[in-house]
Design a protein around this nucleic acid. Structure first.
Lengths: 249, 249
DNA sequence: GGGCGTCATTAACATTTGTTGGGCGACAAG
DNA sequence: CTTGTCGCCCAACAAATGTTAATGACGCCC
């Protein structure tokens, strides 16, 4: 492994360490996890519903999403994942997956055997606790999304999503909070917030017209963070970030 | 502790054991957890948003619910909890709670210190794994709820909720699947499925008229399980129950 | 450079869901 | 027994969102 090609699990170890301080040996054990790195094109399945995944997948770059298909063929996106996210702690301990995971863009992913991860979690309680915290944060985001689709109107939902994406991107050091690429079609945004693509379009245009955002294709510029956050009833509390960036609401 | 008053944590130990087999000492350690039992009247707060809970709370009897309040004063219920559920694994490891938990009926709850629970989880990996599984199942239910409010219409949402409640009640040995007491007002049901109480009423009446259910006050009788499950796009898969009752869809 | 497919945009119209407000019955408090 | 409150039920109307369909822009492949 050359210096131009750092160890692929470094970012993961740092992320866990930011939740719970890791001792030197614990950190080394994380880096020693067996894994294989794969590059996957956009639109490919990482996990399918009813699969019994034997590996857990860690995002190294790119974006992926979880989703479910409902009776009438509608699709609901349940989460968006980006670099550093553990994509399948959610399913690996179940007998079979209850939802799909698919790449949104081209992705580099590291596959780690479920059993190795499990052993590690119970050999180093610091690592176990950090991983547990990660799953709890996933849960917290799920809860916020329930509230978002259940009790907010179209404008609030979309504003909230734009804010969340911005904050999460910045937290991992990709893009500025107020100017980023959103790698999704309006139909996919609709599947996130429980709206049709037509209504997503109406609402995005309205946000632009009101001067809160400025979009061109996939790029989003947030012109007035305070107002957008207010419009989306957004607050970083539920993200439980290690240190709260004080600049944001 | 007399024989008429069994150890309050027995059910909890059994529940964990149904997920991951527990050795004799592991099981004993669960029962040895320090705890204090309290009876709480209906409508009381167990956890408030922004609290830093030092104790985790285990439901012994009764029903409680998690919820968030959004900008316009709307409320979204995020989960319903019943006997045997661990109410606050969700929050105890965070610096502060991101939502509220409140009793729905009178409840008996056992408060267990967070630190004891944490120590136990890392002393006995079987217990740790079982607890982890519990939180993953909570997450799975959250995901299903996102899909429910995001992509199903009123009839589907409510039918789905009625089915879920029925199956969960039966799983813990309370009430039959097709005839139970639902301890919620129609407004609270609305807060679960993201609808107004007026529309919940319309929809419940329609289910009755179509012969799928029969209700009087808080009692629900499911006349045609198959059809109700189909109407609600309901399937027990996401509940990840230890043994699937084959009688249900 | 031309052709093709995907995606954003818009409009007209349909449907679902929300809002308001009133009546009624069950239950609890006095 | 009376009264008040709460929750269920209902109807008329309002608003939000979905549906369908057409158009144009853009990027990609040959």
């Amino acid at each position: 492994m050359s210096s131009r090609d750092p160890h692929p699990l470094t970012a993961f170890a740092q992320r866990l360490g930011s939740r719970v301080p890791l001792s030197e040996p614990a950190s080394a054990a994380v880096l020693a996890l067996p894994h294989s790195v794969r590059v996957m094109p956009a639109g490919e399945h990482i996990v399918r519903e009813r699969d019994r995944p034997s590996h857990c997948c860690l995002m190294l770059s790119g974006f992926s999403y979880r989703h479910k298909i409902v009776a009438n063929g509608g699709r609901q996106i349940l989460a968006i994942h980006m670099a550093g996210d553990m994509v399948d702690l959610q399913n690996t301990f179940f007998a079979s997956s209850d939802h799909n995971v698919q790449t949104l863009t081209q992705c580099e992913v590291a596959f780690i055997p479920r059993t190795s991860l499990e052993e590690l979690a119970f050999s180093f309680s610091s690592v176990g606790k950090a991983m547990w915290l990660e799953t709890l944060i996933d849960g917290s985001i799920f809860r916020e999304w329930i509230a978002n689709v259940g009790r907010r109107n179209a404008k609030q939902r979309i504003a909230h999503f734009l804010c969340e994406f911005a904050v999460r991107l910045e937290a991992i050091g990709l893009g500025e909070t107020c100017n980023y690429e959103l790698p999704m079609t309006q139909e996919q945004i609709g599947d996130v917030v429980g709206l049709t693509s037509v209504h997503v379009n109406r609402t995005l245009m309205a946000l632009d017209r009101e001067g809160l955002t400025e979009r061109t294709r996939r790029s989003v510029i947030i012109l007035d963070w305070q107002q957008l956050a207010r419009a989306g009833d957004f607050n970083t509390h539920y993200l439980h970030m290690p240190e709260q960036p004080s600049a944001l609401a």
